[in-house]
Computed example of a mutant assay.
Amino acid sequence: MTPLQNLFESLRGQNRKALMPFLTTGDPNIDTTEAVVAAARRAGADLCEIGVPYSDPIADGPVIQASYQRALDAGFKLQHVWDLGQHLTDNADVAAMPRVTMVSYSIIYRIGMAKYVEQAMQAGYCGAIVPDLLVEEADEFSKVCQEKGFDLIQLVTPTTTRDRQCRIAELSSGFLYYVSVTGITGERTALPADLVDNVGWLREQTELPICIGFGISGPETAAQLAPVSDGLIVGSAIVRRVAAAVAQANESGTDPVKAAADEAGEFCRSLRSAIDAA
């Protein structure tokens, strides 16, 4: 079994839902990213999605786009993702927590499918979320991932046809990423009325865990979605808080790494409490 399969089996046995924060590698630097991941883990995060900055993000809203640009402006290279993975593996607070990359398929294709998987696994990652990999072109990469025991996580959106949803599920492993809203990433105060029914239908078609992302702004929306999901992915709300904490610390002359970690930890703790209560 892969680390993700083990995690979700364990969570089911405990009747718990996964909390998965998203963070951008190197925003504003690797030390901050590592400290925030560790703080999220201590606050109850079960796994973590590590964003690979890319100059042309597919579905990311302004908050995550800005974080990618900050990292790129600071000189981000793919090696930084591997360095971060190694740092997290060496960090006792985080070492046991599964970690996956959120990465454009163009990056994987450019360096080679097998090579990407090998480098990711060597750095301690157990899977990849690939938002721009078309299901018609996913067979080869899916096979590479299966051979290596590396999970390929793909996205299902509200506009994905049901036949296509089933095909995506067949070529995915670890979990399915269900996009809660039509559009880009970002915080929302209201979620679609048909979300519960759509996730319920998909659950009948696959044995994969279903994690919901896009639009989760805080404990209230987390509590709404926890009963119908196997896990919740929270990105923009965390990335925004980290950026604000860093900016404020820089202005006041305090430690920006600690400020970012404290802010992210407090927010993740509130999400964890809401998810567990729901």
Rank of each mutant, 00 (worst) to 15 (best):
D197G: 06
D197F: 00
N198D: 15
V199N: 10
V199I: 11
V199M: 07
V199A: 08
V199K: 14
V199L: 06
G200I: 03
L202C: 10
L202R: 15
E204S: 10
Q205F: 00
E207T: 14
E207V: 12
L208A: 04
I212H: 07
I212D: 05
G213M: 03
F214V: 11
F214R: 03
F214M: 05
F214L: 02
G215I: 03
G215A: 02
I216H: 07
I216P: 13
I216C: 13
G218Y: 03
G218P: 14
G218F: 01
G218R: 08
P219A: 06
P219R: 12
E220D: 15
E220H: 12
Q224K: 11
L225P: 15
L225C: 14
A226D: 06
P227S: 04
S229P: 10
L232F: 03
L232P: 14
I233T: 14
V234Y: 08
V234S: 11
G235Q: 02
S236E: 05
A237F: 00
A237P: 12
V239E: 10
R241E: 14
R241Y: 02
V242H: 03
A243E: 13
A243Y: 03
A244D: 15
A244V: 12
V246R: 14
A247K: 10
A247M: 07
A247V: 08
A249S: 06
A249L: 01
A249M: 04
N250Q: 11
N250L: 08
N250S: 07
E251F: 00
S252N: 11
G253S: 06
G253N: 07
D255H: 04
P256Q: 03
V257L: 04
V257I: 08
V257D: 13
A259P: 07
A259Y: 00
A261T: 07
A261M: 08
A261G: 03
D262Q: 14
A264C: 10
A264S: 12
G265R: 01
R269G: 05
S270K: 13
S270G: 05
S270I: 01
